[in-house]
Protein backbone atom coordinates (compact mmCIF):
# COMPACT_ATOMS: atom_id res chain seq x y z
CA UNK A 1 0.00 0.00 0.00
CA UNK A 2 2.64 2.51 1.08
CA UNK A 3 4.91 1.39 -1.71
CA UNK A 4 2.13 1.72 -4.28
CA UNK A 5 1.30 5.21 -3.11
CA UNK A 6 4.86 6.46 -3.06
CA UNK A 7 5.60 4.97 -6.45
CA UNK A 8 2.42 6.48 -7.87
CA UNK A 9 3.40 9.84 -6.39
CA UNK A 10 6.92 9.79 -7.77
CA UNK A 11 5.89 8.66 -11.21
CA UNK A 12 2.63 10.51 -11.72
CA UNK A 13 1.49 12.91 -9.04
CA UNK A 14 4.67 14.93 -8.42
CA UNK A 15 5.30 15.79 -12.09
CA UNK A 16 1.66 16.79 -12.46
CA UNK A 17 1.81 18.95 -9.37
CA UNK A 18 4.96 20.54 -10.75
CA UNK A 19 3.08 21.38 -13.89
CA UNK A 20 0.34 23.11 -11.95
CA UNK A 21 2.82 25.01 -9.80
CA UNK A 22 4.63 26.25 -12.87
CA UNK A 23 1.39 27.51 -14.37
CA UNK A 24 0.72 29.41 -11.13
CA UNK A 25 3.54 31.78 -12.12
CA UNK A 26 1.07 33.25 -14.55
CA UNK A 27 -1.57 35.70 -13.44
CA UNK A 28 -5.12 34.61 -14.27
CA UNK A 29 -5.23 37.30 -16.89
CA UNK A 30 -2.06 36.14 -18.61
CA UNK A 31 -3.28 32.58 -18.39
CA UNK A 32 -6.51 33.54 -20.05
CA UNK A 33 -4.75 35.50 -22.78
CA UNK A 34 -2.54 32.59 -23.69
CA UNK A 35 -5.46 30.22 -23.87
CA UNK A 36 -7.77 32.51 -25.76
CA UNK A 37 -5.20 33.30 -28.41
CA UNK A 38 -6.38 32.08 -31.78
CA UNK A 39 -3.46 29.79 -32.30
CA UNK A 40 -3.88 28.01 -28.96
CA UNK A 41 -7.61 27.60 -29.39
CA UNK A 42 -7.18 26.17 -32.86
CA UNK A 43 -4.49 23.78 -31.70
CA UNK A 44 -6.70 22.54 -28.88
CA UNK A 45 -9.65 22.24 -31.22
CA UNK A 46 -7.60 20.24 -33.74
CA UNK A 47 -6.24 17.96 -31.03
CA UNK A 48 -9.42 17.21 -29.13
CA UNK A 49 -11.81 17.32 -32.08
CA UNK A 50 -9.82 15.01 -34.29
CA UNK A 51 -8.90 12.74 -31.40
CA UNK A 52 -12.55 12.29 -30.54
CA UNK A 53 -13.52 11.66 -34.15
CA UNK A 54 -10.68 9.16 -34.52
CA UNK A 55 -11.67 7.39 -31.30
CA UNK A 56 -15.24 7.07 -32.56
CA UNK A 57 -14.04 5.58 -35.84
CA UNK A 58 -11.82 3.21 -33.87
CA UNK A 59 -14.73 2.20 -31.69
CA UNK A 60 -16.77 1.10 -34.69
CA UNK A 61 -13.96 -0.46 -36.72
CA UNK A 62 -12.32 -1.94 -33.64
CA UNK A 63 -15.58 -3.65 -32.65
CA UNK A 64 -15.86 -5.19 -36.10
CA UNK A 65 -12.24 -6.41 -35.96
CA UNK A 66 -12.78 -7.86 -32.50
CA UNK A 67 -15.92 -9.64 -33.62
CA UNK A 68 -14.11 -11.26 -36.53
CA UNK A 69 -11.09 -12.22 -34.41
CA UNK A 70 -13.14 -13.77 -31.61
CA UNK A 71 -16.07 -15.32 -33.40
CA UNK A 72 -14.61 -16.60 -36.66
CA UNK A 73 -11.91 -19.13 -37.42
CA UNK A 74 -10.16 -18.16 -40.63
CA UNK A 75 -6.70 -18.82 -42.03
CA UNK A 76 -4.24 -16.22 -40.78
CA UNK A 77 -6.38 -15.27 -37.80
CA UNK A 78 -3.43 -15.45 -35.42
CA UNK A 79 -1.35 -13.26 -37.72
CA UNK A 80 -4.12 -10.66 -37.90
CA UNK A 81 -4.44 -10.87 -34.16
CA UNK A 82 -0.73 -10.09 -33.81
CA UNK A 83 -0.86 -7.30 -36.40
CA UNK A 84 -3.37 -5.44 -34.22
CA UNK A 85 -0.54 -4.83 -31.76
CA UNK A 86 1.78 -3.24 -34.31
CA UNK A 87 0.69 0.34 -33.51
CA UNK A 88 1.51 -0.40 -29.84
CA UNK A 89 5.01 -1.54 -30.62
CA UNK A 90 6.01 0.61 -33.56
CA UNK A 91 8.01 3.72 -32.64
CA UNK A 92 5.60 6.54 -33.38
CA UNK A 93 8.10 8.34 -35.58
CA UNK A 94 8.35 5.24 -37.77
CA UNK A 95 4.58 5.12 -38.01
CA UNK A 96 4.54 8.80 -38.93
CA UNK A 97 7.11 8.40 -41.67
CA UNK A 98 5.38 5.32 -43.05
CA UNK A 99 1.96 6.95 -43.10
CA UNK A 100 3.36 10.10 -44.65
CA UNK A 101 5.06 8.14 -47.41
CA UNK A 102 1.89 6.18 -48.02
CA UNK A 103 -0.44 9.17 -48.13
CA UNK A 104 1.89 11.72 -49.78
CA UNK A 105 0.71 12.93 -53.15
CA UNK A 106 2.95 10.43 -54.88
CA UNK A 107 2.41 7.64 -52.35
CA UNK A 108 0.58 4.35 -52.95
CA UNK A 109 -2.64 5.56 -51.39
CA UNK A 110 -2.01 9.27 -51.71
CA UNK A 111 -1.82 9.20 -55.51
CA UNK A 112 -5.25 7.62 -56.17
CA UNK A 113 -6.78 9.79 -53.45
CA UNK A 114 -5.19 12.89 -54.95
CA UNK A 115 -6.75 11.93 -58.28
CA UNK A 116 -10.11 12.04 -56.50
CA UNK A 117 -9.21 15.48 -55.16
CA UNK A 118 -8.62 14.27 -51.58
CA UNK A 119 -5.44 15.41 -49.93
CA UNK A 120 -4.48 13.48 -46.82
CA UNK A 121 -0.85 14.14 -46.01
CA UNK A 122 -0.05 17.60 -44.61
CA UNK A 123 -3.72 18.34 -43.84
CA UNK A 124 -5.94 17.73 -40.78
CA UNK A 125 -7.15 14.58 -42.54
CA UNK A 126 -3.62 13.25 -42.16
CA UNK A 127 -3.74 13.88 -38.42
CA UNK A 128 -7.04 12.04 -38.31
CA UNK A 129 -5.54 9.04 -40.15
CA UNK A 130 -2.54 8.90 -37.83
CA UNK A 131 -4.76 9.09 -34.76
CA UNK A 132 -6.89 6.20 -36.04
CA UNK A 133 -3.75 4.18 -36.68
CA UNK A 134 -2.34 4.55 -33.19
CA UNK A 135 -5.69 4.20 -31.41
CA UNK A 136 -7.05 0.99 -32.90
CA UNK A 137 -5.31 -1.55 -30.64
CA UNK A 138 -6.72 0.12 -27.54
CA UNK A 139 -10.27 -0.64 -28.58
CA UNK A 140 -9.47 -4.14 -29.81
CA UNK A 141 -7.47 -5.18 -26.77
CA UNK A 142 -10.00 -3.81 -24.28
CA UNK A 143 -13.04 -5.39 -25.87
CA UNK A 144 -11.49 -8.70 -26.94
CA UNK A 145 -11.32 -10.44 -23.54
CA UNK A 146 -14.85 -9.36 -22.68
CA UNK A 147 -16.24 -10.66 -25.94
CA UNK A 148 -14.33 -13.92 -25.52
CA UNK A 149 -15.97 -14.23 -22.16
CA UNK A 150 -19.40 -13.69 -23.65
CA UNK A 151 -21.00 -17.07 -24.20
CA UNK A 152 -22.34 -17.53 -27.75
CA UNK A 153 -25.17 -19.42 -26.05
CA UNK A 154 -26.72 -16.15 -24.92
CA UNK A 155 -27.20 -15.25 -28.59
CA UNK A 156 -28.86 -18.59 -29.19
CA UNK A 157 -31.01 -18.01 -26.13
CA UNK A 158 -32.08 -14.60 -27.43
CA UNK A 159 -32.84 -16.09 -30.85
CA UNK A 160 -34.95 -18.91 -29.48
CA UNK A 161 -36.87 -16.38 -27.40
CA UNK A 162 -37.86 -14.70 -30.64
CA UNK A 163 -35.33 -11.86 -30.87
CA UNK A 164 -34.23 -10.79 -34.34
CA UNK A 165 -30.53 -10.53 -35.10
CA UNK A 166 -30.68 -6.79 -34.60
CA UNK A 167 -32.53 -7.12 -31.29
CA UNK A 168 -29.95 -9.63 -30.14
CA UNK A 169 -27.13 -7.23 -30.94
CA UNK A 170 -28.75 -4.11 -29.52
CA UNK A 171 -30.37 -5.61 -26.43
CA UNK A 172 -27.96 -8.37 -25.48
CA UNK A 173 -24.50 -8.07 -27.00
CA UNK A 174 -23.88 -4.30 -26.96
CA UNK A 175 -25.11 -3.82 -23.37
CA UNK A 176 -22.88 -6.67 -22.24
CA UNK A 177 -19.90 -5.11 -24.00
CA UNK A 178 -20.84 -1.55 -23.02
CA UNK A 179 -18.31 -0.90 -20.26
CA UNK A 180 -15.48 -2.41 -22.32
CA UNK A 181 -16.45 -0.37 -25.38
CA UNK A 182 -16.49 2.84 -23.33
CA UNK A 183 -13.10 2.06 -21.84
CA UNK A 184 -11.71 1.33 -25.29
CA UNK A 185 -13.12 4.60 -26.57
CA UNK A 186 -11.60 6.56 -23.70
CA UNK A 187 -8.18 4.96 -24.03
CA UNK A 188 -8.10 5.49 -27.80
CA UNK A 189 -9.17 9.10 -27.27
CA UNK A 190 -6.57 9.74 -24.57
CA UNK A 191 -3.87 8.20 -26.71
CA UNK A 192 -4.87 10.22 -29.77
CA UNK A 193 -4.91 13.48 -27.80
CA UNK A 194 -1.42 12.84 -26.55
CA UNK A 195 -0.03 11.49 -29.81
CA UNK A 196 2.91 13.49 -31.03
CA UNK A 197 5.46 11.45 -32.94
CA UNK A 198 3.41 10.06 -35.78
CA UNK A 199 1.19 13.10 -36.17
CA UNK A 200 3.84 15.77 -36.67
CA UNK A 201 5.24 13.95 -39.70
CA UNK A 202 1.96 13.76 -41.54
CA UNK A 203 0.28 16.89 -40.26
CA UNK A 204 2.07 19.61 -42.16
CA UNK A 205 1.89 21.59 -38.91
CA UNK A 206 0.34 24.74 -40.30
CA UNK A 207 -0.58 27.01 -37.39
CA UNK A 208 -4.36 27.26 -36.91
CA UNK A 209 -5.01 24.49 -39.44
CA UNK A 210 -3.05 21.36 -38.77
CA UNK A 211 -1.11 22.18 -35.66
CA UNK A 212 -1.83 19.93 -32.68
CA UNK A 213 -1.66 21.12 -29.09
CA UNK A 214 1.34 18.95 -28.07
CA UNK A 215 3.31 20.43 -30.96
CA UNK A 216 2.39 23.93 -29.88
CA UNK A 217 3.72 23.11 -26.43
CA UNK A 218 7.02 22.00 -27.95
CA UNK A 219 7.17 25.13 -30.08
CA UNK A 220 6.55 27.36 -27.05
CA UNK A 221 9.23 25.49 -25.14
CA UNK A 222 11.74 26.00 -27.91
CA UNK A 223 10.90 29.69 -27.79
CA UNK A 224 11.60 29.62 -24.03
CA UNK A 225 8.00 30.63 -23.34
CA UNK A 226 7.69 28.04 -20.58
CA UNK A 227 4.63 29.61 -18.97
CA UNK A 228 2.73 29.48 -22.26
CA UNK A 229 3.67 25.85 -22.68
CA UNK A 230 2.52 24.92 -19.20
CA UNK A 231 -0.74 26.78 -19.62
CA UNK A 232 -1.63 24.72 -22.67
CA UNK A 233 -0.41 21.60 -20.90
CA UNK A 234 -2.64 22.30 -17.91
CA UNK A 235 -5.67 22.61 -20.14
CA UNK A 236 -4.89 19.31 -21.84
CA UNK A 237 -4.35 17.71 -18.50
CA UNK A 238 -7.64 18.93 -17.09
CA UNK A 239 -9.65 17.89 -20.15
CA UNK A 240 -8.01 14.45 -20.24
CA UNK A 241 -8.63 14.05 -16.55
CA UNK A 242 -12.29 14.98 -16.90
CA UNK A 243 -12.73 12.50 -19.74
CA UNK A 244 -11.07 9.66 -17.87
CA UNK A 245 -13.00 10.49 -14.73
CA UNK A 246 -16.31 10.57 -16.60
CA UNK A 247 -15.60 7.21 -18.20
CA UNK A 248 -14.63 5.80 -14.85
CA UNK A 249 -17.91 6.90 -13.36
CA UNK A 250 -19.82 5.52 -16.32
CA UNK A 251 -18.06 2.21 -15.90
CA UNK A 252 -18.81 2.11 -12.20
CA UNK A 253 -22.42 2.81 -12.93
CA UNK A 254 -22.52 0.09 -15.57
CA UNK A 255 -20.76 -2.36 -13.30
CA UNK A 256 -23.13 -1.72 -10.44
CA UNK A 257 -25.77 -3.03 -12.82
CA UNK A 258 -23.66 -5.97 -13.91
CA UNK A 259 -21.84 -7.23 -10.84
CA UNK A 260 -18.82 -9.36 -11.60
CA UNK A 261 -19.61 -13.01 -11.84
Amino acid sequence: MGLTLSWLSIIILIPLAGLFLKSLELSPEQFWNILSSRRTLNALRVSFGLAFAAACVNLVMGSIIVWALVRYRFPGRRIFDAIVDVPFALPTAVAGVALTALFAEKGWLGAPLAALGIKVAFTPVGIFVAMIFIGIPFVVRTVQPVLQDLDPEIEEAAGSLGASRWQTISRVILPSLGPALLTGLALAFARAVGEYGSVIFIAGNLPNVSEIAPLLIVIRLSEFRYADATAIAVVMLVVSFVVIFAVNRLQRWAQSRIPAR
Binding site: D151, E153, I154, S160, S176, R261
Partner: peptide, 20 residues
Protein backbone atom coordinates in the same frame (compact mmCIF):
# COMPACT_ATOMS: atom_id res chain seq x y z
CA UNK B 1 -35.43 -20.77 -37.95
CA UNK B 2 -35.13 -20.94 -34.18
CA UNK B 3 -36.95 -17.64 -33.94
CA UNK B 4 -40.08 -18.83 -35.72
CA UNK B 5 -40.31 -22.26 -34.14
CA UNK B 6 -41.62 -21.01 -30.84
CA UNK B 7 -39.59 -23.46 -28.85
CA UNK B 8 -38.42 -22.83 -25.30
CA UNK B 9 -34.79 -23.83 -24.82
CA UNK B 10 -33.00 -24.18 -21.49
CA UNK B 11 -29.21 -24.34 -21.59
CA UNK B 12 -26.93 -26.31 -19.32
CA UNK B 13 -25.10 -23.17 -18.28
CA UNK B 14 -28.30 -21.11 -18.06
CA UNK B 15 -27.28 -18.49 -20.68
CA UNK B 16 -28.99 -15.76 -18.71
CA UNK B 17 -28.44 -12.16 -19.79
CA UNK B 18 -26.18 -10.94 -17.06
CA UNK B 19 -26.73 -7.23 -17.60
CA UNK B 20 -30.46 -7.65 -16.98
Amino acid sequence: GARERHVGFVFQHYALFRHM
